[in-house]
């Protein structure tokens, strides 16, 4: 078959047809995958909530509040077990990471005690700052069962109670900063 000539009309028609077909195909795939994507994202969030606040049956309230530095918002998940408050999971952040934002989920018991923490997203150096993730080191375990009321959420270098990760003070600071930010908002609403 002869090759289509590169006339102006042919080129316009070809590009038009190619883009229309591509647009239709993408629209179709988007429609099909929209729901599974939403479910997958939701599951990820719920898994994190379940990890930091063990043993609840329903997430009753979910709302966002502006962080105290106004840079982004914290998301609260208030959880209940048999109608009683089991704890609050807060998705919190710190802009003070070594390379950008650090996102953390913190679970607080009703009395303000930290139940558990989970790192959601960060861009810290692999092998150093990424040790804030419980999968990589025990750094974050030191906050378990501590109440920020009598536990200073600053690294020891800054006069606080947090043992920093070796060679990753900035990442440790960011982690503590995120937890502290969550606690401040938690306290305000309690």
């Amino acid at each position: 078959m002869a090759k289509t000539e590169s006339s102006f009309k042919n080129m316009v028609i070809t590009l038009f047809v190619v883009t229309v077909v591509a647009a239709l195909a993408l629209g179709g795939v988007y429609t099909v995958t929209k729901e599974p994507i939403a479910i997958a994202k939701r599951e990820k969030v719920e898994k994190a909530v379940r990890f930091v606040v063990p043993g609840f049956d329903t997430i009753m309230n979910e709302f966002k509040v502006l962080g105290n530095d106004g840079k982004d918002s914290l998301t609260f998940f208030e959880t209940y077990k048999n109608g009683e408050k089991a704890g609050t999971a807060i998705k919190t952040y710190s802009p003070e990471g070594f390379s950008g934002m650090v996102w953390i989920m913190v679970g607080f018991a009703p009395d303000g005690k930290i139940l558990n923490t989970a790192v959601l997203d960060h861009k810290e150096t692999p092998g150093l700052g990424d040790k804030m993730d419980i999968k990589k080191s025990n750094f974050s375990a030191q906050l378990q069962d501590k109440n920020p009321k009598d536990f200073n959420l600053d690294v020891k270098k800054d006069g606080g109670d947090v043992d920093a990760i070796t060679a990753a003070t900035i990442s440790s600071r960011a982690f503590s900063d995120a937890v502290e930010r969550a606690y401040k908002e938690f306290e305000k609403r309690d």
Binding site: M1, K3, T4, S6, N10, T14, L15, V18, A22
Partner: peptide, 24 residues
Amino acid sequence: VKNFIPDKVRIPSFIVIIASFVTI
């Protein structure tokens, strides 16, 4: 589609095709 695509616009057409599959 190689025979339907005029030579002068082949690169943009290929890119659209590739970009669509990547998005998929």
